[in-house]
């Protein structure tokens, strides 16, 4: 039946243009039906229906107000909690030393290698000797006890 009805609607749409349909809808017979429908009396709703609706609406409104109040209390508390947690995390976080690996014979690599080398030398020899001297010292003979300078009287100089 539904299919038949749909076919009827489709058939009507295909057969008639919108202007023709408008014309038909404006015909006296069709307009009479409209007038009759508009003249149909309205069925009033009871007072008990209305009071019941008022109760439901009041309950909905109250629950909404309650929810809003709870949200009003909860949202700052939640914000404080999150802020506290963030503060704790930030305070106790150990600083991470990030090293970047530089490879190859680039200038950067050479600079880093030179810097590391100087740090190592400073660790071994202490302050007062620079890397140039140490590197030079590797190639020259070191001063040993019992050398030519042993006999020199420094006091007479």
């Amino acid at each position: 039946m539904k299919r038949f009805e749909q076919d009827k609607i489709n058939g009507l749409e295909m057969r008639l243009t919108e202007q023709e349909l408008d014309k038909r809808l404006d015909s006296a017979g069709q307009q009479q039906v409209r007038t009759m429908l508009q003249a149909m009396p309205e069925e009033p709703l009871s007072l008990s229906w209305r009071s019941e609706l008022n109760q439901v609406l009041a309950a909905k409104r109250d629950s909404k107000i309650r929810r809003r109040r709870i949200a009003w209390f909860l949202s700052p508390a939640l914000g404080l909690g999150v802020a506290g947690a963030l503060a704790v995390v930030t305070m106790f976080k150990t600083p991470e030393v990030r090293t970047s690996q530089i490879s190859g014979d680039t200038i950067e690599a050479q600079l880093v290698a030179s810097h590391r080398n100087s740090i190592r030398i400073a660790d071994v020899t202490g302050v007062g000797l620079n890397s140039y001297e140490v590197i030079e010292g590797k190639n020259t003979s070191t001063v040993t006890p019992g050398s030519d300078l042993d006999g020199v009287d420094f006091g007479s100089l």
């Binding site: 009827k8 609607i9 749409e13 919108e18 349909l21 038909r24 809808l25 069709q30």
Partner: peptide, 17 residues
């Protein structure tokens, strides 16, 4: 579509008639 509304209205009124 509006055309379908009009078709339905026409058929409904015709049915009532």
């Amino acid at each position: 579509p509006v055309g379908t509304v009009k078709s339905r209205l026409f058929l409904a009124r015709a049915h009532l008639q």
